[in-house]
Design a protein around this nucleic acid. Sequence first.
DNA 1: CCTACCGATCGGTAGG
DNA 2: CCTACCGATCGGTAGG
Lengths: 191, 191
Amino acid sequence: MPTRRDQLTREAARLFAERGFHGTSMGDLAEALGVQKGSLYSLTGSKQQLLLDTMREGARAFHAALDEVPERAPAAERVQRALRGHLRVVSEQLDVATVFTREWRYLEDADREEILAERRRYEERWRVLFEEGLESGGLRTDLDAGAAALLVLSAANWAYTWLTPDRDTDELADRFTAILVDGIRGYATSS
Amino acid sequence: MPTRRDQLTREAARLFAERGFHGTSMGDLAEALGVQKGSLYSLTGSKQQLLLDTMREGARAFHAALDEVPERAPAAERVQRALRGHLRVVSEQLDVATVFTREWRYLEDADREEILAERRRYEERWRVLFEEGLESGGLRTDLDAGAAALLVLSAANWAYTWLTPDRDTDELADRFTAILVDGIRGYATSS
DNA sequence: CCTACCGATCGGTAGG
DNA sequence: CCTACCGATCGGTAGG
């Protein structure tokens, strides 16, 4: 049974995703919970705190998904797993993923630095994944690991805009992976 | 020489990109132009109008870039050209591209529908580009044109978050294209 | 382009 | 969890 505080956090993620942080008032949140806005301050310290809570949950979820990628597996399979994991988080926690991806800039300075550090660390883990693939020989030797990571992560970060609960996210991740692994042309003509 | 009105439109795009539509006040815009906020209303009808102006400029720029893609050329080259064009717009009009990509939801109903229709049309043009590649035989026959378009356009739409003026956008577009065309594995092992 | 102002709403607090 | 309120700020307007 969710606590009242959990309910507030969930509604905050939902409304921040739908209307943006600055487009959501404490009055909107109070209305969603069926209380007066003054009452919210027994559940949270401030509107900023609600944003930070959502951000931390997003960072936790994306890192946890990446933790599930097998250490020893062919590079193509590891990319597939990582992409599945990312899209699953977006699909299953769409509000949190949306806020995490789009609203971090409205955090106050210290909080923003904390979350940006988590974002950078996440991106770095993706880059390492491609570099390990190069070292283990599973990827073409002339691959630019940084560009590959940027390409895949960019597509993943945009997913919150088009992923819907009814879409089969694993299948979509696999289609992306198929394109990324063997290309749209399908036969290697360049080095 | 830019008119006062052009200056306002440019500052609006800059601040909407930096702080978001709801995070930017007419007072902020007035300060950026060095006038009192009441004076802005001789240059624009409302804050909403400034947002709509920025959106229309964004839609115009992205469609214009796609217009430059050669009709008759190998599919891989057409994708390369389209990606170059998109990233050039983002790079050269970063503020406009950012607002166009991220702030459309704060438009009022009728304006939002207009801009969303332009976004959908742009995405559709990308999908057609891949389908034409399939028909002309330049792409592997089992390619999912919809998934390919979604993948590339997702990466392109995220570019406003990491593109900086000093980066060579054409080169980056070409690296993306190289990965997309021949894949990260580099030799075709699956059908 | 300015001064002066409008009603509305904001995030947050006091006291219960 | 409520009522009542705080000072600040919002987008926009009137009249010059």
